[in-house]
Each structure stands twice: as structure tokens, then as C-alpha cells.
Design a protein around this nucleic acid. Structure first.
Lengths: 295, 295
DNA sequence: CTCACTGCTGCAAAAAACGCATCGGAATGC
DNA sequence: GCATTCCGATGCGTTTTTTGCAGCAGTGAG
């Protein structure tokens, strides 16, 4: 889109933090980019960049303009998607930021299901921790976010919510695996492994232990749920995850046991979008499908 | 804004209904405009105009695009207004579409009041009947609409509502002027004048007479409330208007008498904006002021 | 100090947009 | 039924805009 090049250049320059660097990235000379920016500022009536000795940075006006640019780009994508849709092509692109837990089962299944109906639709999936996932929405980098226990819900408009209780993950050989329901205290008495700070499961675990003469003493702390799932097969430890992230009961030797209700609060898995935004058709339809699946 | 010229040209072409005519209006040759449109359609990936033997017309895709263009232009105006505001200049522009009734007193007073505080803010006021006023909102031609008894409230987001009873307007010499409260039946027994079809007052009058053995037999039907106010001073007739449109009781010889409650429903004077839209600062502040004044 | 890196600017070349004249087609007037 | 009128499209030469190149001045790190 010819009329948007200046705007996207401004956006990329702001991201790169320097005109020269940005120019290099987009394979033009810095002078060309510099002039574009200067001309834009002149007709815009106000400077949008602060000139620093080490590069440029958006000033407050620029920040405002940047929001406008993002919104414009997003809306244009939405319009194109709508138009493709009325042509009966059902093309489009869905970008979604989601927690790691959705990785192994849920998301692959849902995406495949959707693409079976609409082969013209493409996807980008970005695995992000809950804070970053919300950021993705407000920068228009993703249309949707599917997060476990989001942090600050401003600008996050909930489309669908489901409770997900924290469960213990262990090997079938583990002594605790014989019981149907586990107490959190018993789990923590064993050797255990927990996700790192930025994840919702960890947050809920800390909330559950705080002020109850229990404490987390993990033998392993990791930011990969997949790794932790594998690890319980190698050492006799207890892991913690939410059911949606566990592959179907198979011969993997992995066992999932609910924790006693009352020992730990269930968390919320939320599907959401940027508040007030109108999503492209493809994204909106996919959101509907996921919402149904979550119920 | 250089990057918007193609978009505004497309908009104006759609309005003009023909490339040649539009090109003439904007003082360029038709070939230049034609090429712009062709190039845009090519990179957009779909035609947006239907080529007719007598000109062009937007196709469905074009209609969608047009909404996008309007939204973009509106949002850019909002951003500029925000930026001007953070510079402490308090500049901006307010465009408002309103019923004729607000003409003589209310709007001039409120605009003057606002401009006393913020001399940098300019106004456009468009007098429109209620249907057109709502149209203005959805085409982004006006930020605000202040209308008496709007027609179809979709896309019309009410900011403030006030009841306005229909009153009789007559000369001080008129026989009915001696009574404090008038019956509608008595008024219609006299020679009377009414606004034309498109106005809310007329609508309420017809609603009040329908099926009650009363009927409107106006000696004069006009689309100017000002004219009708003047006319009652020249002939012994009864006019109908809402209080907000009547100049303060003065030596004009004009008398305002309420109609008996129950004879006719009061109408609603509504201040509204395009649903879901974020208004520029100046318009939002002015809307607040008007909302207070209406209470 | 040197060095590296920044944004900025004169000038010529390349690219894009424009005006002019004209074509073919479809509705309108007589 | 034919001339007229109005429409969008297009080839071509000219004008305007954008770009690349090279070099400038300023700033901070080592």
C-alpha cells in the first residue's frame, strides 16, 4: 500500500531507534528515510521524533501518532479481510499470542480444524508469557491472545473464560500416582519442579503456599512446560500444569492428578482481544471457534 | 497530509459520481485521477469502482473501503487534536449537525461560551433535519449531532437526552394568548401553521392527532422555524415549536404557551455521536458542556 | 586525541505523477 | 438512424518528487 509506506517507515524507525539503522534494514539510504521523516513532520505540523546523539526516539506526539498508525494498519487488514470474504474466498490471516500450555494439544488441533474448513486462511502463533501476550494485543502485533491468568487486564477485552485447575503431573511409577486426588502439602513434601516466575501456574502456587507453613523448594525451575513434562519421566518428581496442556492419556507414562479443591485456587484461561477493536473476519471466526471449544 | 491524498480523492470521486467531474473539482486532469484510482485498485488487489457508461459508482468492496477511509480521516483529526492539546494550545475543530430549533438561542450561546474559554477552537455548524443529521455522523462529516426526535437510532450513541414539550407560539394579540395552558384541540380549531414533514414537531403533532377526530389543516407549512416565528406576528395564527428554540421573552410580541399535558407527547432532544467513535478532544469537551447545559 | 556513530544537506540521477491529445464505447437528442 | 455528448482508458512528452551518493557537523566512548 503506497500511501502507508511513510507511516510504516516511521513505525520501523521508532522500533529501530535510529534512522540509519532503520534505513539499512529497509534497504534504502538514510538520507531518503531522513527526508521522508522531515517532510512528514513538516506537513504534520509537529516533530514526532526526539533527536538524540545516539539516534531518535518518539516524543509524546509521536507516541500518539504511533497508536494511530497501528490502528490504521490494523483496520486496513480488517477491511481487506472483509473484502476477501465477500468475494467468497475466505482468505485471511490470524495472529494469536498464547501461553505455552496451549502448545502441545489445544492450539494445533483447533488450527487444523479451522484450516480444514478454510484452507485460504494462514496463521501466526506466538508463544508468549502472559505479560508479553497482552503487550502483543496493544501493539496490534497479534489479533488474539489466549492466556492463563493474565496480569493487568486493561485494554484486554475478554471473549471467553474457562477455569483451569492446577494439577500435578507425575510419572506412573511415582508413589503419589496411586491416589486419585492429591493434597498440595503432600506434593510439596516430595521433590517437585515448578515453572518460572512469569507463568500463571507459578503465581497460583505461590498464592496457595503463602502464609500456610508450606513453601516451594523446587529442585528444578524451568520456563518450558514441555521440558518439565519430560523431566518427570526421568526423576521421581512432581510437576504442576493445567489439564489443557497435557497430551491425551497415552502410553507416555505420564499421569495427571487433580489437587484437592481448596488447596489451590483454579486459574482462568482467557481468550481476549484488544479492547474496542474490530477484528478481521478470519480472526473473529477463529475466536468464535476457540470460544466454543473452551466451553 | 500527503499520504492521504489518494484516499480523499477516492472519496471525492465516489461523491462526485464520475472521475472527470471529480477531477475538474480538484483542478487536475481526469487522466491523472484515473491513473491514481487504477494504481490504487491494482495494489489494493481489487477494483473498488463499478464503471458505468455515465460514470463510476462504488462496488461493495469500495463501500467497505470508504468506511475505512472515513474512519482514518476521523482518527487522524482526533490525534492531531490530542497533540495540539498536549502542547497546551487547546486548538481544534468541532463540527456539529443540529436541528433548526437550536439556531436562534441555544447553540450561539453555547459556542460563544466555549470559545471564550478556548479561542483556538473553531466550529462548523450544519443545520440539518433529523435524518440528515444522523447521516452526517455516520459519514464522519460531523462529530456531534443535536437533534429533536431522531429517526433511526442505529449507530447513534446518545450522550445526553432532554425532554422538550411541543408548545404553541402565538402573537400577544391572539385570543388564545390569554390562557396559560392551551388545549391542542383549541389550537387546531384556529388557523394554524406547522413545520414540514421532516421535522420532529410535525411528527409529534401527527402522532397526537391520529385517530382522535382532530386533523392538521395548516394555512402555512414551512421548513423554517424562524419564518414561522415571524409569521405569527403578521397573521392571527397558531404555530408550534419547542421552548429551546424560542428567543427569550422580549418585546418581540411573541408568546409561548404550553399545551395541555396528555394532548401531545413531549419530544426528546438528543445529543449524540457516532457509535463507538472516539471524538477529538475539542468535540468531546464541547459535548460535555452541552450535556451539562441540557440538564 | 581518535574513532565510531548520529542526523542532516547539496546535487545529480532515477522514478513517479501529471497534462495533453486522443480513442472507443454507450446513452441521448433530434 | 445519425450526430452529439459524456464517459473511462491510454500513449507520450514534460514536470515534479524521490532517491542515492558523498560529505558535513556534532556527540560520546575509549
Amino acid at each position: 500500500m503506497r500511501h502507508l509506506v511513510t507511516l510504516t517507515m516511521i513505525r520501523d524507525t521508532a522500533r529501530a531507534g535510529s534512522i540509519r539503522r532503520a534505513a539499512e534494514d529497509m534497504n534504502i539510504t538514510s538520507s531518503a528515510l531522513n527526508r521522508r521523516i522531515q517532510n512528514f513532520e513538516e506537513e504534520f505540523g509537529a516533530p514526532i521524533f526526539e533527536r538524540l546523539p545516539r539516534g531518535v526516539r518518539l516524543n509524546p506526539a509521536g507516541e500518539l501518532l504511533m497508536q494511530h498508525i497501528q490502528a490504521q494498519l490494523g483496520d486496513l487488514a480488517r477491511v481487506r479481510s472483509l473484502i476477501a470474504d465477500l468475494g467468497g474466498e475466505r482468505r485471511g490471516h490470524v495472529s494469536i499470542a498464547c501461553s505455552q500450555a496451549l502448545n502441545p494439544v489445544f492450539l494445533p488441533r483447533e488450527v487444523a480444524l479451522y484450516r480444514r474448513e478454510h484452507p485460504g486462511v494462514t496463521f501466526s502463533i506466538r508463544i508468549r508469557d502472559r505479560a508479553r501476550a497482552e503487550e502483543e494485543l496493544s501493539t496490534f502485533a497479534s489479533d488474539l491472545a489466549l492466556v492463563f491468568e493474565p496480569v493487568h487486564l486493561v485494554d484486554f477485552e475478554v471473549i471467553q473464560a474457562t477455569e483451569q485447575p492446577v494439577c500435578a503431573v507425575l510419572s506412573g511409577d511415582h508413589p503419589l500416582a496411586r491416589r486419585e486426588v492429591l493434597r498440595l502439602r503432600d506434593c510439596l513434601a516430595e521433590r517437585h519442579i515448578v515453572p518460572s516466575q512469569e507463568y500463571g501456574v507459578r503465581h497460583l502456587l505461590e498464592k496457595a503456599t503463602r502464609g500456610r507453613s508450606m513453601s516451594l523448594r523446587p529442585v528444578l525451575e524451568a520456563d518450558s512446560f514441555d521440558l518439565m513434562r519430560q523431566y518427570v519421566l526421568y526423576e521421581e518428581v512432581v510437576g504442576f500444569q493445567i489439564p489443557i496442556g497435557i497430551p491425551p492419556t497415552s502410553r507416555s507414562g505420564l499421569v495427571l492428578r487433580p489437587l484437592h479443591p481448596g488447596d489451590i485456587d483454579p486459574g482462568l484461561l482467557l481468550l481476549g482481544q484488544m479492547r474496542g477493536r474490530t477484528l478481521p473476519v478470519a480472526s473473529a471466526k477463529f475466536a468464535q471457534q476457540i470460544a466454543r471449544a473452551l466451553q
